[in-house]
Design a protein around this nucleic acid. Structure first.
Lengths: 248, 248
DNA sequence: CCAAAAGTGTTATAACTACACCCATGA
DNA sequence: TCATGGGTGTAGTTATAACACTTTTGG
């Protein structure tokens, strides 16, 4: 059947329609660990379990707008990386009705999400596993072992795993790690972010040069204050990489 | 509003619902050029224009199943690369109703799509542009200049551009080019495929070694027949890379 | 002067490229 | 034996990694 034949005979009220939601993986590096925001569900299905923040797409709203509205309402919205991740639509993924969800992931400096989780008591920051070194196969259950009993609702474990895989895969060739740091940062902090994501230690000189040669960052001339020992120079992402212009 | 608050008050017949479709970018290398299957629309909107093959997702069907059903019904389905691409859902992308479409792309050996286009007279194989060398910015209107007047319906030019960008980006680190060739192929054919996708010539020895060292292919011991001059050895993709197991 | 972390030079290894060359085949 | 394309060796260049080293600061 073609689209048009379908539409001629299509009565929106005739059968249960699709709903379209947006689910968000809000990520930050907290205490050297990659963490995601989870929301405790206070109603069935999955009551008491945790789920990704999400919501329905409005009738006059694009998918990106919905993601921005739902994900950034709570957080101040300057300088965020927000990108569509993948779309999940198995028929039984939600027991209530047929829901197709477009997953997005967003990167924040730690302070933002810590403040968010403290302000809203149904939110938690859950550490994720990043040690599945090169293990092929479906990335599922990315939750840290301490959080393993915190079973996730719906297919949200799969979404989390997809987000971590995307972040790891994109880390080396796209300027995104910087969105997990304050606007100005020391190179050691940037290395900590990378190490938290790839799950292993990196050697300092190689990392430094790789970053400097990439041309993504520039020195500010300022230095850390209050450091116990020699203060590190602060760098920032060059402005031309601030806006997510590239389409994928 | 939370999901649950929404659902409590949600009457599926109360307002125009979302529809979910799957659109397919069927790709092959024909005469050294990357081509996509387009379908002539015989009804409004966009009558006379060309669009990607697509269809509605069934009520009991997953997205992957829908893509497989719509994309592979016409083509014999052994050894195909099929992967979700991106989801497009702007409110006005279809004038009839709110339609969110999940785009997939699929890779075929040329013969398959040539036979398909010959068998069904509303289908054409349109050459794509691959010469936008490193130009940043949104990849739009990937259609070849000769086909430029063949304006695409809806946002399908954007979908096409996204597919080409994904293919190019993935070519070097995922074993996918092989799905654009017969099961057994000569290394020169593989190089032609790569050159068609990246839009520039590659040097033979470097390419050969890269492919051999990657460990994705193995020699069959057989050789081309009917060649005018020295016959080339035939290679094949190692069986462990045949199934699209990796989730991304 | 010491401890601790910032930052840099120096070398070795691996990857990639370019170029030239040899090989096998049909006419 | 010649033309044509398949296939391979060698050397130069570049990127990457590892290691040791120097520098700067607060105490």
């Amino acid at each position: 059947m073609t689209d048009d034949q379908f539409l001629e005979t299509y009565d929106p009220a005739a059968f249960a329609p699709f709903a379209v939601t947006v689910d968000l993986v809000l990520l930050a590096i907290v205490e050297g660990r990659l963490c995601a925001v989870l929301q405790r569900r206070d109603a069935a299905p999955g009551q008491g379990r945790f789920a990704l923040p999400g919501g329905f797409v409005g009738p006059e709203e694009s998918l990106d707008e919905a993601a921005r509205r739902i994900g950034l309402a709570k957080v101040k919205l300057d300088r965020v990386w927000l990108e569509q991740l993948y779309t999940f639509g198995d028929p039984d993924r939600d027991p209530r009705m047929r829901i197709v969800t477009v997953a997005y992931y967003a990167l924040f400096p730690a302070e933002r999400l810590i403040a968010l989780a403290q302000a809203q008591d149904d939110l938690v920051l859950a550490p994720l596993r990043t040690d599945w070194e090169g293990e092929k196969g479906a990335p599922v259950a990315a939750l840290d072992e301490n959080e393993a009993e915190r079973a996730l609702a719906f297919d949200h474990a799969q979404i989390l795993g997809t987000a971590v895989a995307r972040l790891r895969g994109k880390l080396d060739y796209a300027p995104i790690a910087f969105f997990l740091l304050p606007r100005e940062f020391a190179l050691r902090e940037l290395q900590d972010v990378h190490e938290a994501i790839v799950g292993r230690t990196l050697t300092k000189p190689a990392f430094r040069r790789r970053m400097l040669d990439q041309g993504w960052i520039e020195a500010t001339g300022k230095f850390e204050t209050g450091s116990a020992y020699r203060p590190a120079e602060l760098y920032r992402l060059k402005p031309e990489f601030l806006n997510p212009q590239e389409g994928e």
